[in-house]
């Protein structure tokens, strides 16, 4: 069995399996390595999917605890920790969105505490408009975009995390981009080298 000290949060599958073997034995330090390595991504996906940082934190906590409980059943060689986490995060996020269709974006959560510069305010406003547009996308399209664009997963990894085919993900991404292009037409046109009014 690998020594935890020699394991970073290595993305290679063997490293993941060794870490999970330690976690399965109740090794708190190994679990802490996994949490610290992946928590940021899980929270980021949760925020983009749920549009609310508090809900995203709750989601991330549940996902990480699921990993802790799942550790004894971890099957070496089957998946990376990151893939497993993305998949569980995706499923839980979609479950929560469906359970709470009426949830709205927190009005204030993105506002800077001390926004003194106009540029900062404009950036915040743009972020809010983009976040609202993302929230208006169907959840599967949103998820595909979050994983592929924001998390930088490959098409294959996105498909694996979504338990879907590459072709289906491609279709979701194309529709998501087409919809966002219409919804954010003023925003993206203002960013063109030669803005068109």
């Amino acid at each position: 069995m690998a020594d935890r000290k020699t394991l970073s949060f290595a993305d290679d599958r063997d490293g993941d399996d060794s870490l999970m073997a330690l976690v399965a034995n109740g090794d708190g330090q190994a679990y802490e390595i996994v949490v610290n390595a992946h928590l940021g991504r899980v929270v980021a996906v949760g925020r983009k999917m749920l549009g609310n940082p508090a809900a995203a934190d709750d989601l991330a906590q549940d996902v990480m605890l699921k990993l802790w409980h799942h550790a004894p059943k971890w099957q070496p060689g089957r998946a990376r920790i990151s893939t497993w986490l993305y998949r569980v995060t995706s499923n839980l996020a979609i479950d929560r969105i469906r359970a709470n269709r009426t949830s709205q974006l927190d009005e204030d959560w993105d506002m800077p505490e001390q926004a003194t510069q106009l540029q900062g305010l404009e950036e915040q406003a743009l972020k809010q408009r983009v976040d609202r547009a993302l929230q208006d996308l169907p959840e599967r399209q949103r998820l595909a975009l979050v994983l592929f664009h924001y998390q930088g997963l490959t098409m294959g990894e996105t498909a694996e995390a979504m338990d879907s085919s590459v072709e289906a993900v491609q279709s979701l991404l194309a529709r998501a981009r087409a919809t966002l292009k219409k919804m954010l037409v003023r925003e993206w046109r203002s960013l063109l080298p030669d803005p068109v009014d």
Binding site: G28, Y31, R189
Partner: peptide, 30 residues
């Protein structure tokens, strides 16, 4: 230009917030 718009909404989760959340998770697991 559309992607630049999307990038403006990229999430930056502060280290402090993550650290607090990680501590809560560790406590829950224990």
């Amino acid at each position: 230009a559309l992607e630049d718009c999307l990038d403006a909404a990229a999430e930056t989760v502060g280290a402090k917030a993550l650290s607090g959340l990680a501590s809560r998770i560790m406590a829950q697991a224990a």
